[in-house]
Amino acid sequence: MTLQKGDAVILDDITLSLERARFLAIIGPNGAGKSSLVKILLGIDHPTQGSVAVLGSPPGHHAKRAAYVPQLKTFDRSFPATAIQLVVSGERQAWPARTTAREREQALEALTEVGAEHLADRPLARLSGGELQRTYLARALVRKPELVVLDEPATGVDFMAEHDLNHLLEAYQDKTQATVVMVTHDLAAARHHATDVLVLNRTVVGFGEPERALSDECLRRAYGHVGHAHSGFVAW
């Protein structure tokens, strides 16, 4: 599969497949095309060449079976809404005018799962970065997805929250046999939590079990020079 925007080749000839119930970590430098790949998996963008199948169908075909936690929370902070309304939108696949008692109950359950039930009626404008991240996670889990796609969910979240996040995902996976695809800059998390790692830099640099994909060789090819300037980053 290849993705072009104008003259720029964003993703070049990507070929790979992932079994269900796996935990895939996608790593790569800034601008490597990680978010672009994720958007294709979700049917937000479409490859210029080649084809993609997700859960056995074209991406976006069964939108409700997949859930998305986006990278940048680009929504307008002045949007009048409370956390629970955002969670219900994940269940309903539309913005709720009013929420039914049942929707509210399920949304509260999801918020409790991520330790954010106390935020339910808080306006979005008054949530911190980490609180917002949890709300988005609850929004994703509330629909009981078979595939969870997260784009750098740990950005702006403290260490404990990141730790919780990875455990939450693992717990959800144990319970439901769901597939998790997570873009991350955290190599330690990729090593410990993922069953598969994709090292991406416009094309596939490494793909497979964490030890193999995260070899020095692959990282050097993806990030260029590993050692001096980037050593702190890689040592994670």
């Binding site: 049917g43 937000i44 998305y68 986006p70 680009t74 809404a81 696949q93 539309a94």
Partner: peptide, 12 residues
């Protein structure tokens, strides 16, 4: 209006 990409990911 809330978030274009989220809506797109849900087929809007």
């Amino acid at each position: 209006t809330f978030d274009e990409e989220l809506a797109q990911s849900d087929g809007v």
